[in-house]
Amino acid sequence: MVQDLGEFSQHCVHERSLESSRPAGENHWFLAADILDLIFSRLNDGLELGKCCRVNRLWSEITNSDKFWQALVKRRWQIKELVRYSSGPLASERNSFLKKIYSQWHRSCRQPSSSFSGDRYPPFASSMSRSKTSQRFERFHGVRFSRSSKRAAPASGPSVYNLYMWVNCVHSSDCTLSSSMLGLHVVVQNFGKVPLRLFPDQVCLQLKTGEKQYASWVRCEGGQRGVYLAVGQGEGVVEDQEQLEGCKEVVLGQWDFAVIGTCYFHMPCEAMFEPDALELCDELSVYVERADGNASLEAMNKESADEYEGSSRHVTAKFDENRIWRHYTEVNSKFWVFHERPTIAGGI
């Protein structure tokens, strides 16, 4: 199997590669554009592809191609079809247009990845208003996106303060039921411009029966109590767990998200398995108030003025039955297993 290197490089020189600029001793084959195409199409995360952009000029040129980013945008935000209805200067750019869209959405609409598996999961309950979100996206560079009809809309009213809350129940570490205690992994993100003060110990679960209860305790990923806040907008996410351990309130700037951790709630004894328990849940709410003092309505446009009415509110996330059951399958009357391991990242 050992092959003469001279012979090898002779075989591997690709017509389209940058022959003249190649120093001796370099691994030539990685410059072959056709092969890189095949390999990049198998990367399924924007961050992976982003790393490749920075390797060298050829890699950057290839990875800027819309075809990779289109696949990633569709995958991560579960979009069936991308429809372009305006031909502005940006929309006519041949390459890296969808890279910009991915970049924009990633920043404004991100679901932190699970610390357990590193994947992003579609949330079961979400406080995000579907119509509002898609309006937002439609405004971006004059591109309209039609959503997959398969995806169930998170049933909820407009979210006050543009604070979005996700409840992860997909991975076993994110949703557990033991001794009649249901653990839910809760994440909130401030989508609006107004800084908000969040009270993480005020997480309240309402059951379908109308019964309300606050979280009995909250556990962080590191096993600590309380929330940790991850702040960042391109400069990198700062996770300051130590400082925020057991804290009563955190302030979220725009795009900041807070991982409240796993909140535990008492469940009625008839709930035997996680999906049973989730089905009993109606909505989860968390108490927030404005953190910038006076309501400076002039600073906001008319649309958002409505959203910021009042100074404190509960942000709620509704549970969606259809989505809950999609992830479980009945094996026999006593056991439930994950129907499928969802791989699509859930920003929305």
Binding site: L47, G50, R54, E235
Partner: peptide, 11 residues
């Protein structure tokens, strides 16, 4: 151009 892409922490 795309800061988040280049920061491995900026998930």
């Amino acid at each position: 151009a795309h800061p988040w892409i280049y920061d491995k922490n900026a998930k």
